[in-house]
Computed example of a mutant assay.
Amino acid sequence: MAISLQKGQRISLSKEAPGLSKIICGLGWDVIKPAGGGFFSNFGNKAGQEYDLDASVICLSDNGKLTDNQNIIYFGNLSHPSGAIVHQGDNLTGAGDGDDEIIIIDLARIPSSITKLVFVVNIYDCQARKQDFSKIENAFVRLVNVANNQELARFNLSGQDYQGMTGMILAEVYRHNDEWKMAAIGNGVSVNGLGELVKSYI
């Protein structure tokens, strides 16, 4: 049974799934529907706009720093040079149930120079559209063992106040004493795009 994580909680993936090699990181969210529901409810209503959320992975060295732009996996760079991290592509609306964006990670192929993977989400063109995470609900990040399709851990972010936040640091998967661990973060940040979010790791 998958572990339901609370903000700040950490677990050992290696202990939960001995021999774990390959995982899927699934991220999902819904946009709160505007009140009313009539034919014209989406017109002139900021809450009726489509939100384009982008999931990314920032790969950090053992000093917690980003050393190369190739270590940012996002819609503009879908695969790490090592082949260890592959983003399955951009979902422009978050429509539908289940995972909205999927990232496949081969832990065994991650270079030794990378010790931490930071999973983040930001709202594309957030300033021009005047959008933030206060209109996002049912956001989650989950890890699945590819070998048996078993969900290992899930972190639900709903019920927290993200007014004014345009980016979010969801979770970290990191290497510690030859074990892979996961930490549930859930910190909102006010940034204009992925570029600004990444600056804090340079």
Results as ranks from 00 to 15, higher is better:
residue 4 S to H: 06
residue 5 L to A: 09
residue 7 K to A: 11
residue 10 R to G: 05
residue 11 I to E: 05
residue 12 S to W: 10
residue 13 L to M: 09
residue 14 S to K: 01
residue 14 S to I: 01
residue 16 E to A: 05
residue 18 P to F: 00
residue 18 P to T: 07
residue 19 G to Q: 03
residue 20 L to P: 08
residue 24 I to Q: 11
residue 26 G to Y: 12
residue 27 L to Y: 13
residue 28 G to F: 03
residue 28 G to P: 10
residue 29 W to G: 09
residue 29 W to C: 11
residue 30 D to W: 04
residue 31 V to M: 06
residue 36 G to I: 14
residue 37 G to M: 11
residue 37 G to Y: 11
residue 39 F to V: 06
residue 41 S to E: 09
residue 41 S to C: 14
residue 42 N to S: 12
residue 45 N to E: 04
residue 46 K to E: 04
residue 47 A to D: 11
residue 51 Y to A: 13
residue 52 D to A: 05
residue 54 D to Q: 08
residue 55 A to F: 13
residue 55 A to L: 11
residue 57 V to P: 00
residue 58 I to K: 13
residue 58 I to M: 09
residue 58 I to P: 12
residue 61 S to A: 07
residue 63 N to C: 12
residue 64 G to P: 06
residue 64 G to S: 00
residue 65 K to D: 00
residue 70 Q to K: 13
residue 70 Q to T: 14
residue 72 I to K: 09
residue 73 I to T: 08
residue 75 F to E: 03
residue 76 G to E: 02
residue 77 N to K: 11
residue 79 S to F: 04
residue 79 S to L: 02
residue 81 P to K: 12
residue 82 S to F: 07
residue 82 S to G: 03
residue 82 S to H: 04
residue 83 G to Y: 06
residue 83 G to S: 13
residue 84 A to T: 03
residue 88 Q to C: 02
residue 89 G to Y: 03
residue 93 T to L: 05
residue 94 G to K: 10
residue 95 A to D: 15
residue 95 A to P: 01
residue 96 G to Q: 06
residue 96 G to Y: 10
residue 97 D to Q: 13
residue 97 D to A: 12
residue 98 G to T: 06
residue 99 D to F: 08
residue 101 E to C: 06
residue 101 E to A: 11
residue 103 I to T: 15
residue 106 D to Q: 12
residue 110 I to L: 15
residue 110 I to C: 01
residue 112 S to T: 02
residue 113 S to M: 03
residue 114 I to G: 08
residue 115 T to N: 08
residue 118 V to H: 10
residue 120 V to F: 07
residue 121 V to D: 02
residue 123 I to W: 02
residue 124 Y to V: 15
residue 125 D to F: 08
residue 125 D to C: 04
residue 126 C to G: 00
residue 127 Q to H: 04
residue 127 Q to V: 07
residue 130 K to W: 06
residue 130 K to V: 15
residue 131 Q to V: 00
residue 132 D to E: 11
residue 133 F to N: 02
residue 136 I to T: 15
residue 136 I to D: 13
residue 139 A to V: 00
residue 141 V to N: 12
residue 144 V to C: 02
residue 145 N to F: 07
residue 147 A to E: 01
residue 148 N to L: 07
residue 149 N to R: 14
residue 150 Q to K: 14
residue 150 Q to V: 04
residue 150 Q to T: 07
residue 151 E to K: 14
residue 151 E to I: 10
residue 151 E to L: 09
residue 154 R to W: 07
residue 156 N to K: 05
residue 156 N to M: 01
residue 157 L to Q: 09
residue 158 S to M: 10
residue 158 S to V: 03
residue 158 S to R: 11
residue 159 G to Y: 07
residue 159 G to H: 09
residue 163 Q to K: 08
residue 163 Q to Y: 13
residue 167 G to R: 08
residue 167 G to A: 15
residue 168 M to A: 06
residue 176 H to C: 09
residue 176 H to Q: 11
residue 176 H to A: 03
residue 177 N to I: 02
residue 179 E to I: 04
residue 179 E to T: 10
residue 180 W to K: 01
residue 181 K to G: 03
residue 182 M to I: 05
residue 183 A to Q: 06
residue 187 N to L: 10
residue 187 N to W: 07
residue 190 S to P: 06
residue 193 G to W: 08
residue 197 L to M: 15
residue 200 S to W: 00
residue 200 S to N: 08
residue 200 S to I: 10
residue 201 Y to S: 04
